[in-house]
């Protein structure tokens, strides 16, 4: 039982990273039906911008609160700009034209980001400052929880709650949900569809970047290839929860994190992938629209 709870703590922490990236997949997919394969790599870009700030530019020596704010906000803005550029130059001309071409472009974009990062930051493993946050923790019965885990988990929850409030509480957020149903009808409401699409890309990138920085802080190691596996897990989470469904992506991310943690704990880390995808396929066969159902209309 103790071990189970310990795995749960780890699973939820890691799952919250997946959930953030999965939200990016889900928001973008919901609106333009594009699987933005670059999503995981955006997270990597965010992690590296954060690393540059903290290590190369020495932000780690600033007061902790200032360093943290800078290490989250600046990567989020930077990555958002990157994603906007991707949208504008690579995806926009192909929207509504060729489904295959845009999918390949997304794969190409993923490849591009990875190799661009390789050029900029090099192939080696880059280390985040190890002692930024206290590594101490507290015990809840048999379970040891570090303050770092709590802080990261709460930050993720905060970001997700913020997104949820935005999407459900504001008019622009409502417009985003409306776009998942019907683009033309949205235009007839006076909604500037292109603007909302840009917004979705900005939000998706910001969440991904935040998750990247958190991964850097949690594992203290980042590498230019980290985006692939992260993106894969997050994409799986989005589909598992029901693509286009925002709470679905959150829960899906947590589930993938837990599944991974339990598999690693009870079975062996080697079988993580098999178990995760096995569960995904099983879910899709039983319920083809994901656990919580998709939130997109049949056709555009």
């Amino acid at each position: 039982m103790g071990a189970f709870l310990q795995y749960t703590v780890i699973g939820l922490t890691v799952g919250s990273f997946y959930a953030l990236v999965a939200l990016g997949y889900t928001i973008v997919y919901g609106i333009i039906r594009l699987i933005n394969f670059a999503q995981g790599d955006l997270s990597m870009v965010g992690a590296f911008i954060g690393w540059t700030l903290l290590v190369s530019l020495g932000f780690q020596h600033l007061p902790l609160w200032l360093a943290l704010i800078a290490a989250f906000v600046i990567p989020m803005i930077g990555t958002a700009l990157v994603n906007l550029g991707i949208l504008q130059f690579a995806y926009k001309p192909l929207l509504h034209k060729s489904l295959w071409a845009i999918l390949i472009t997304a794969l190409g974009m993923s490849l591009f980001l990875e190799n661009a990062a390789l050029q900029v930051w090099g192939p080696s493993i880059n280390a985040y400052p190890p002692s930024m946050l206290p590594s101490s923790g507290f015990s809840l019965g048999p379970v040891h929880v570090t303050f770092l885990q709590v802080a990261l988990f709460l930050t993720s929850l905060l970001l997700m709650a913020g997104l949820y409030a935005f999407v459900h509480g504001t008019m622009i957020g409502t417009a985003m949900r409306a776009l998942a149903v019907d683009h033309d009808a949205a235009r007839l409401m006076g909604i500037d569809v292109d603007q909302v699409i840009r917004l979705a890309f900005v939000l998706g990138a910001m969440l991904a970047a935040a998750s990247g920085v958190m991964i850097g802080i949690y594992y203290t190691q980042i590498q230019f290839t980290m985006g692939f596996l992260l993106g894969l897990r997050a994409f799986t989470a989005a589909v598992l929860g029901g693509i286009g469904n925002i709470p679905g992506a959150m829960v899906g991310g947590m589930l993938i994190g837990l599944l991974e943690s339990y598999t690693a704990g009870y079975l062996s880390g080697k079988w993580e992938t098999v178990i995760v995808f096995g569960v995904l396929i099983a879910v899709l066969v039983v319920k083809p629209t994901g656990i919580f159902g998709e939130r997109v209309a049949e056709r555009m």
């Binding site: 949900r177 149903v181 019907d182 009808a185 939130r295």
Partner: peptide
């Protein structure tokens, strides 16, 4: 072409 997954009020707001 109403937005089926939104509430009545949200539909009107979008108008």
């Amino acid at each position: 072409r109403i937005f089926t997954i939104l509430s009545v009020e949200e539909n009107l707001n979008l108008g």
